[in-house]
């Protein structure tokens, strides 16, 4: 169940400057844990103390915002692409 994860620039210091990483996970929550296992320290940036994704971070699965899906319980399938994007101003 490998998924591709797009890492935003500010987090690439955790991923040895890799903008795209491949990880095994069956859901967004599992992916967050898998990221922490591979890149220790990254979880504290992504989530608050309660394990909830920080409100200024948007997470997309195959271009769909997970808030339109099943939030952090959104399931992931082999080949899915997950994008982590900090919120940006309007236009």
């Amino acid at each position: 169940m490998a998924v591709q994860v797009l890492i935003p620039t500010p987090l690439q210091k955790f991923t040895n400057d890799e903008a795209m990483v491949s990880l095994e996970a069956g859901s967004v929550d599992e992916l967050l844990q898998a990221m922490e296992a591979r890149f220790p320290g990254i979880l504290a940036r992504l989530c608050d103390d309660g394990g909830k994704l920080r409100r200024f971070l948007n997470v997309y699965v195959n271009s769909e915002d997970i808030r339109f899906l099943n939030h952090q319980a959104t399931s992931l399938a082999d080949g899915d692409e997950v994008s982590i994007v900090p919120a940006v101003a309007g236009g």
Binding site: P8, V88, A89
Partner: peptide, 25 residues
């Protein structure tokens, strides 16, 4: 627009451009 914005955040990751509403926000 929200999809355009997401794409631009990804472009901003790899191109050294000044995005007025992203890295120059």
């Amino acid at each position: 627009y929200d999809q355009v914005n997401r794409l631009c955040s990804e472009v901003a990751n790899t191109y050294g451009w000044g995005f007025v509403n992203i890295n120059l926000r």
